[in-house]
Write a protein that binds this DNA or RNA. Sequence first.
DNA 1: GTCCATGCAAACGATTTGCATGCGT
DNA 2: ACGCATGCAAATCGTTTGCATGGAC
Lengths: 130, 130
Amino acid sequence: MQNIQNLLDNTSLKKTPQRLTILKTIDKYGHIAIEDIYNEVKEQFPSISLATVYKNINALKEENILSEIHPKDVKPKFEITKKPHGHFVCKKCGEVYDFELQNSCQPSLDVIDNIEGSEVYLYGICKKCK
Amino acid sequence: MQNIQNLLDNTSLKKTPQRLTILKTIDKYGHIAIEDIYNEVKEQFPSISLATVYKNINALKEENILSEIHPKDVKPKFEITKKPHGHFVCKKCGEVYDFELQNSCQPSLDVIDNIEGSEVYLYGICKKCK
DNA sequence: GTCCATGCAAACGATTTGCATGCGT
DNA sequence: ACGCATGCAAATCGTTTGCATGGAC
């Protein structure tokens, strides 16, 4: 993983300690929900506000530094933006695993002009839970 | 499309006029958000409550008569449950189109025990908007 | 007649906003 | 010094709940 600091280099976003800690936390967990970011960052910044976490998440999404995923029956989670990939979600423990997308799934739909993005979620039980 | 009435046959759900109209509305539009169901049904039942729409949607999801989809940047929409398929979402007009899934996309992920469900969203511009 | 459904209002959880103060640049 | 960021409280949005009345069966 690249240096977290560099992620903000070509943006107008300032490198505040709170913001950097939010990014480090997301990087550490891979996929994490807002509340869990908040609770983790609060250990280092007890006075941080949930609103600050939300504002940061939105600013970082705006800059495409973060991506939001929203699997069924689970609260939205965030990850550092990487190259496109799918998400396997364990129905039991809720853990999210990345996987590589085969360049398949090309639909034969004549209403489509061009495809600019995709999301693939798979659901099941992970080996740890079995 | 099968008869809307029959959808409720093997359930404990009663065939109330409001419920049937909700189902007909979803069937008519293919994919539709709660608010839009509410506004459409209100033309026939001016006194219907948004809460009633929500309660019906939840009951019908419970019975697997409805499926929920939740593409990025769009409010949740509902459709009559059909066999598994993907959704193409136009970024401009928001319209959702079904497409057939090729049985591909099998991830090589050793954490997976077995796969029980999937969701595939594609995003782009539809020909109408181009 | 029973039980579920409806409709209203209130409650709720998640997210956003406004504003005064603080801090990175 | 300027402008964005933070933190707090209040506001907002989508959704759910409780309860009394009404309607399907």
